[in-house]
């Protein structure tokens, strides 16, 4: 773990973090709405607000966690950061450059700097492509040379045998597929890695291996990591700062250590209480104890 950082994003006011200089990402008032199919002839269905009024800063070298449940808007936020989703309003600045409102071909510089790893590698890797081509595809897209050598290097870096290059994704286990996805993401030597629930589909022992690999690669390549997860315990392990999202808004943020050990917002407290832990189970907690502070929809967000 890196030294605890002060709050870098707050629900109400954006928190400055002067010691790190200009942040890599500066997000202000980010709002994303989606049109919904019409179900009535009389009036249109109101749009779905996925995220609303998000302010946050991500600094160079930071490991920034985003925690929330299904539908909290965490994946939409990540897609906006990757400029895969255009926001309805608000601003996302990447190293000072505004991303909102840009066209796809004006975002090519971003594709070299920012790469993504998704939850389910079986869905994110094309089943008909060999591992070599999967890892080389971003290099080809960016017209970068030395492809074969780079693919070999990357396979070494993620702990796969070089012979894996000629095989197809279905010939690998879940953990190995996630390694392929990570190698693909690192191919163009990005400075920022966005990870959307990268270990949620994995067994505990494989999860530990992938978390170790991510930590090692982030250190070795000096990456800035934005890590989205529903699991605060995983985020606490991986990240130094965290933002807790609920219903499209950030309800609490601060150092990962502080948020998980002394959560302030009732929703964060409920989230912490609802995760079963070995420690509490062995102390005699039963399933009812997990509901101690279960949130209700009436609670303020």
């Amino acid at each position: 773990m890196v030294e605890p950082t002060p709050s870098t994003a707050t629900a109400a006011q954006p928190g400055p973090a002067p010691h790190r200089g200009e942040p890599i990402y500066t997000v202000r008032g980010l709002t994303c709405r989606f049109r919904q199919p019409r179900v009535s002839l009389r009036r249109p269905t109101p749009p779905l607000t996925a995220i609303e009024g998000i302010d946050l800063d991500v600094h160079a070298g930071q490991r920034f966690g985003v925690v929330g449940e299904s539908g909290s808007g965490k994946s939409t936020l990540l897609r906006c950061l990757a400029a895969l989703q255009a926001p309805t309003s608000g601003s996302i600045r990447f190293r000072g450059q505004e991303l909102a409102g840009r066209r796809d071909r004006e975002l090519k510089f971003l594709r070299r700097e920012v790469q993504l790893v998704f939850q389910d590698p079986m869905a994110s890797l094309d089943p008909r492509m060999r591992v070599r081509d999967l890892i080389a595809e971003p290099l080809v897209a960016q017209r970068m040379g030395g492809v074969d050598e780079r693919v070999g290097e990357l396979l070494d870096a993620v702990g796969l045998a070089r012979q894996s290059a000629t095989r197809y994704p279905h010939q690998f286990s879940g953990g190995q597929r996630q390694r392929i996805a990570i190698a693909r993401a690192l191919a163009v030597r990005p400075t920022v890695l966005l990870a959307d629930e990268p270990v949620s589909a994995l067994d505990v022992s494989v999860r530990a291996q992938i978390l170790n690999l991510l930590a090692e690669l982030v250190e070795r390549y000096d990456l800035t990591l934005v890590f989205v997860s529903h699991d605060l315990a995983v985020v606490r392990h991986v990240c130094d700062a965290v933002a807790v999202m609920r219903a499209g808004a950030v309800v609490e943020s601060g150092s990962a250590e502080r948020v998980s050990s002394a959560p302030q917002h009732p929703y964060t407290r409920a989230l912490v209480a609802a995760v079963p832990t070995l420690r509490r189970a062995l102390a005699g907690a039963d399933p009812a104890a997990l509901l101690g502070a279960a949130p209700t929809d009436e609670e303020p967000t």
Binding site: D203, A273, V275, P276, L290, A294
Partner: peptide, 30 residues
Amino acid sequence: VTVQAQMLKLIDDGVAARDSALLFISHDLA
């Protein structure tokens, strides 16, 4: 996780009320 907590409690209550035996398969030790 919050839905999981509710579900675990329902399973627990459901088998207790019927005195059913429960075989619970999971990779999550906690």
